Amino acid sequence: MVIAKTIMIQGTASGVGKSTIVAGLCRLLVQKGCRVAPFKALNTSDNSYVFPNGQQIACSQAIQAQACKIQPSTDMNPIMIKPVLNKYPVLIVNGEPAAFQVDVKKQNQMLKQVVLQAFQRLEKQYDYILVEGAGSPVELNLKQNEFVNMGLATQLQAPVLLVSDIDRGGVFASLYGTVALLNSEERNLIKGIIINKFHGDPQSFFDGTQILQNLTKIPVLGILPSFDLKIEDEDIVFGNEDIKTKESFACYGASYVSLLDQELDRLAQLFEKHLQISQFLF
């Protein structure tokens, strides 16, 4: 049995574009004839994709499944924490509300097994698994027991691409600081850096690229320009209360699915033009 090749996308912070980059890479691999699936161990989101049987995952993984041209599965997002206004958050495990309250630290080993089992089911079915991290991999107060960023990458021995959003400012500090705070085993897993949301000519950041490579000893694989994409990042994909509880993309009509596919194709073309990552994808 062939086991899928795994590639992990981590970010220097939340909202730097991890979800969008996973979606674009998924569609790019599909265009190359590969069988691909997305995976995110734990997602904190109140924006659910709900299956006909009532199970749910985060919307961003459903969008990524569409990028792969496959049906969403609860294995793609085995754990979801749903914030509830003025109430304790709801823990969703394998698509179902858990019978206990959220205490990730206390339930760490059980949840870690849920994650690994879901991943193992996926990797037997596909050529590639594109894994998305959550937040930053160097939240030091949480790092000891985490299983969604470097905790998962080291378990899987997955190559990691590290993303930073230059539009926020502080790209040198965020990238260098992230790499510096990793231990040597974790640092060795990072195979490349992606600069996201660059305004202007990417060539104008050539000196910055060289500085980053000298500081981190990690190659910069590309600079993605800021562009207007009709797919919102992270888990505000739809941002509409009525849509949050729909059962499938078919509920939005063929025109919506067609528009989504066009945007995903455009995203894949952009990545193929601006990212030098063929050595990691093929």
Rank of each mutant, 00 (worst) to 15 (best):
L116F: 14
V93T: 03
V50K: 05
Y88P: 00
Q113C: 10
V93W: 04
I63V: 14
N53L: 03
L111G: 06
G95W: 05
K106W: 06
Q55E: 15
V131F: 09
E123P: 00
Q56D: 04
V115H: 10
E123R: 10
A65F: 09
A98C: 07
S48C: 08
Q64A: 08
L85I: 12
P78K: 06
S60N: 00
K69D: 14
E132A: 10
I79W: 03
V131E: 04
Q101L: 11
L91T: 09
V84T: 12
M76R: 09
A65G: 01
A118Y: 10
M110Q: 15
V90E: 15
A67E: 04
L116C: 14
V104G: 05
D75A: 09
P89D: 01
V138K: 02
A98W: 06
L122S: 07
I129W: 11
I63A: 05
V93S: 05
A62V: 03
V50S: 05
V84G: 06
K82R: 15
M110V: 13
E96V: 15
A67Q: 02
I63K: 06
A99M: 12
M110A: 14
Q125R: 05
E96M: 13
A99L: 14
Q61C: 08
Q125P: 00
N108C: 14
V102A: 14
Q55P: 00
P137D: 11
L91N: 03
A98Y: 10
Q113V: 14
A67M: 07
L91W: 00
G135M: 03
S48M: 13
G54N: 09
Q109A: 15
V114D: 05
P97I: 14
Q109W: 13
P72G: 04
Q113E: 15
V50E: 02
S73I: 00
N94P: 02
P72A: 07
A65T: 04
N94K: 10
F100S: 13
M110K: 15
K82Y: 08
Q109Y: 13
A65N: 01
